[in-house]
Design a binder for these strands. Structure first.
Lengths: 343, 343
DNA sequence: CTGAAAGCGCTTACAG
DNA sequence: CTGAAAGCGCTTACAG
C-alpha cells in the first residue's frame, strides 16, 4: 500500500546537492562524468539522507536482479534430514554476500511445478542465474535452460547429463576408487552397495566405477538401488544380509541409509565392524552420533562456496566457463570399518 | 548484458492484439475497464506469446516485490546440523508458492552484517516482509523494524522480546509443563536441564516455568546454560553427573546436546534410561538414530507453514495481526526415559 | 469500454 | 564536467 512513500530517491539527493539526478547516478556508481568535488558532496549527502538504490528500479534499468534462483523439492522428506543444502547455501551465501547478491528460494511439490517456476523466472527476468540440483537423465530443466542461454544455469551434476550447461561435479569416480581401494586393502573380497536412484547422473557414474574397480581388484560386488530414505536403507540391508553369500562390507550412498543399515545389522546380532563394515557416502554430524561412529566419505562444502560463486559471476558476466570439479572427497575412517573376519 | 533483449513485453502483446498497452494491463490483471471479448483475446495472445510480467517493472510500479526476506547466521555451525530452518522454510515455502511469493535468503557472519542487510532491504524496498529468528533481549533488528513499520516483520520469539512487533511463539510454557509433569509422574524428584543461551527470550521463559513447575511438584531442579553445541552439551552433562547429588533426569534444549549427553553417560557406565532419563527439546531424525532412541518434545513444523504465511499476508496487506502461538508441542516418548531407580 | 499520458526510481547515451 | 531527455516494462488515474 502506501509503503515506500517516504523513501529517499535519487531525485531527493540531487535536489539536496543542487545537481542533476544523472550527476548523482554517476557519482554513486563511481562512473566518470562528474568531478571529484561533486562526487564527494553527493556521496556525503546521499549517505546522510540514508539513500539506498531502490532494487526494483535498478533491476529494471540494468536488467540485473542481483539474485540467484534455486527451486527445491518440497516433498522430499530428506530436506530436513540431510544437511547438504543448508551447508551449501550457507557456504555459497557467505560468498554472495560480498557482492550483495541474494538467494531466491522456492519450494515445488513436483517437477511440473518446478518447471513452471523456472519458466516464469526466465520470462520475468527474476534471477541473474540459477543453480540446479538432482539432475536426472533427460531432465526438462536442463532442456529449458539450454533453450534460454540468456539466463545462465550452473548444474550440480556429472557433465554427462547437463546437456552442455556448465556443471560443477563431485568427483565421484575418485571417491569410488578411494572407497574400493580402502576396503580392498583391509582385505575385503565381497562388498555390496546400497545406491541412490538410477536416474541420477552421479548414481550412474558411481555404479560404473564401482563395477570397474571391484573387478580390477577381483572383488565380488552386489548393488541395490534405493531412494535415500530410511525405509529403503533398512529394506536393502535386510535383503543383502539374507543373501546366500553375505558381503563383508556395505557402502551406502548417503548417511541416513547407512545408519538404518547399522540398526538392521545390530538387530540381527551382526557386529559392526567385526562382522560387517559400513561406509557412508557423505559425512555429516549424523555419522558421529552412532555407536560405532561411521566411516564416511566427506566432501568439503565450506570450500565449495567460493568456487561456485565465482563460476556464477563469470556466467552472469557472459563469460564461457569450463566445467569444474568440487574440492576432492576425503575418506574419514571411524569405527564402522575393519579387517573382515576370516571365514 | 544483452539479456532480456528478446523478452516479450506488454507493448508487444498490445501491438499483436491491436489494443493499447493499458487495455492489456487491465485484461491481464483481471481489472475492469475492458470488455470480456478484448480480455479473452488479450489473454490468449499473451499466453501464446509466452508473456510474463517483468518482475522488476511490476515491483517498481506496485511497490511490492513478492518476496519475504530472511537473514541467517552463517557462522552458526548448527545450521547444517539442526533441521529446523530447512523444515520451516519448506513448510512456509510450499504455502508461499501458491501466491508466487519467494523467500529471499541472505547469510550474515555477525549481527552487524545482518543489520546492514536489513537496513538495506528497508531502504531499497527489496522485500514485502521479513521473518526474524533467534531474537535476543534488546535485539537491534527489533528496534530497526519498530522504526520502520512500512516493512512488516514477523518475529519468531516470545512476545516479551519483540518490542511490539507481531510474534509467532512456540508455547514454551506448555512444553515445559508437559515435560515436568511427565517426569514427575514417572517418579523423578531431582531433574536437571541443559538450557540454551540466556539471552534468548524463549530460554528465559523456559527457565522461569521450569522453576515454577518443579517447585510446585516439590522437585529439585538444576539448570546449566549452554550454547546448543555438541561441545557444551558434553561439558554440561559431565558437570551435572559429578554433582554430589546427581539428577535422575536431564532435559536438553536441543537434540544435539541430548545426544552428546547420552554419549557422556554411556562412557561413564551410566545406563540410559535405567540410571538416567534423557529428554530432548526438539524432535528430529537424530532422536531416532541413537541407542536408545530419545524421548523428545516435538513441534509441528509442517502445520506451521500455513499459519505463518497467512500472518505474513495479513501484515503485508496492512492489517494489524495479533500475536499467535504455534501448533502445540507434543511429547514423543521413546526409550530414553523411565521410572528412576529406587535409591 | 478504450486510449494517451504520466509515473514508479533508476541508468545512459546525447548535447552543451 | 554537467544537465535535459529518453528509456527499462509495468500500472493507474484521467479524458474521451
Amino acid at each position: 500500500m502506501g509503503s515506500g512513500k517516504s523513501k529517499v530517491t535519487i531525485t531527493d539527493v540531487a535536489r539536496a546537492a543542487g545537481v542533476s539526478s544523472s550527476a548523482v547516478s554517476y557519482a554513486l556508481n563511481g562512473k566518470p562524468g562528474v568531478s571529484e568535488q561533486t562526487r564527494n558532496k553527493v556521496l556525503e549527502i546521499a549517505d546522510s539522507m540514508g539513500w539506498k538504490p531502490n532494487s526494483a528500479a535498478k533491476a529494471l534499468s540494468v536488467a540485473h536482479t542481483h539474485t540467484i534462483g534455486v527451486v527445491l523439492n518440497a516433498s522430499s522428506t530428506l530436506l530436513g534430514v540431510e544437511p547438504y543444502f543448508m551447508e551449501l547455501f550457507s557456504s555459497v551465501g557467505v560468498e554472495l554476500e560480498k557482492e550483495d547478491y541474494s538467494l531466491l528460494l522456492r519450494f515445488a511439490h513436483d517437477d511440473d511445478e518446478a518447471l513452471r517456476v523456472h519458466r516464469n523466472w526466465i520470462a520475468a527476468g527474476s534471477v541473474d542465474a540459477v543453480m540446479i540440483f538432482n539432475v536426472e537423465i533427460g531432465d526438462r530443466r536442463v532442456e529449458l535452460y539450454c533453450q534460454h542461454p540468456e539466463v545462465p544455469a550452473l548444474v550440480f551434476s556429472d557433465a554427462s547429463v547437463s546437456g552442455g550447461l556448465t556443471t560443477i561435479s563431485s568427483n565421484d569416480a575418485d571417491g569410488t576408487r578411494q572407497i574400493v581401494k580402502y576396503l580392498h586393502d583391509l582385505g575385503h573380497t565381497h562388498i555390496a552397495r546400497v545406491a541412490g536412484p538410477e536416474r541420477f547422473g552421479h548414481t550412474y557414474l558411481r555404479d560404473r566405477v564401482f563395477s570397474e574397480e571391484t573387478t580390477k581388484y577381483g572383488m565380488r560386488y552386489d548393488c541395490l538401488h534405493a531412494d535415500y530414505t530410511p525405509q529403503e536403507g533398512r529394506d536393502c540391508t535386510k535383503r543383502l544380509l539374507t543373501l546366500p553369500q553375505t558381503p563383508t562390507a556395505i557402502v551406502y550412498d548417503n548417511d541416513v541409509m547407512t545408519i538404518e543399515g547399522l540398526h538392521v545389522a545390530s538387530a540381527k546380532g551382526i557386529n559392526v565392524p567385526e562382522d560387517l563394515s559400513l561406509i557412508s557416502w557423505d559425512d555429516s554430524y549424523l555419522c558421529t552420533v552412532t555407536e560405532p561412529r561411521l566411516t564416511a566419505l566427506a566432501r568439503n562444502i565450506p570450500a565449495l562456496g567460493g568456487q561456485v560463486v565465482s563460476m556464477l559471476y563469470a556466467l552472469i558476466d557472459g563469460e564461457s566457463v569450463a566445467n569444474q570439479f568440487e574440492p576432492g572427497y576425503r575418506l574419514i575412517t571411524r569405527e564402522s570399518t575393519a579387517v573382515p573376519r576370516a571365514e
